[in-house]
């Protein structure tokens, strides 16, 4: 199991984070579709960090298990947090004049989606994509 942590502090870090995630997914032997799903998800989530919290971290873990490989990404910040998570996950939701496509879009892209947030205590989103290995 390999873990990498990327600090998010500016727009260029969005690109750095998604490339790193993509590279990890590629190294694990994931399909192009899955590489793109997870990289795009990280792009959306890190943009949220820049937009709402200013800075945060992306933790990427690649796992090789018997029978399957998995990439897990935890995107975390100490920003303002989300008051109503259910509302933030609803289609068309946006507080920043953006697309309202961020969280609900990501949720549809990955198989594992978990969000923890409390107003004033930041937000942590954990996502994962895995691929079964046929031996």
């Amino acid at each position: 199991m390999d873990t990498a942590v990327i600090q998010i502090d500016g727009l260029a870090d969005i690109i750095r984070a998604r490339q790193s995630v993509r590279d990890t997914a590629h190294a694990l032997g994931m399909t192009l579709a899955d590489q793109t799903r997870i990289a795009t998800s990280v792009s959306e989530l890190t943009r949220n960090i820049i937009q709402y919290a200013g800075k945060g971290t992306v933790t990427i873990t690649g796992e090789k298990n018997k029978g399957y490989v998995r990439i897990r990404v935890v995107v975390s910040d100490n920003g303002p947090g989300i008051a109503d998570i259910e509302e933030a996950l609803g289609d068309g939701f946006s507080t920043s004049g953006g697309l309202g496509m961020g969280l609900p879009g990501v949720k549809r892209l990955v198989e594992d989606f978990e969000i923890k947030s409390r107003p004033g205590h930041g937000t942590t989103v954990s996502i994962a994509v895995s691929r079964r290995l046929w031996v």
Partner: peptide, 9 residues
């Protein structure tokens, strides 16, 4: 190889 919702817009 990545077009997220921002780039799509």
């Amino acid at each position: 190889d990545v077009v997220d919702s921002f780039m799509a817009r």
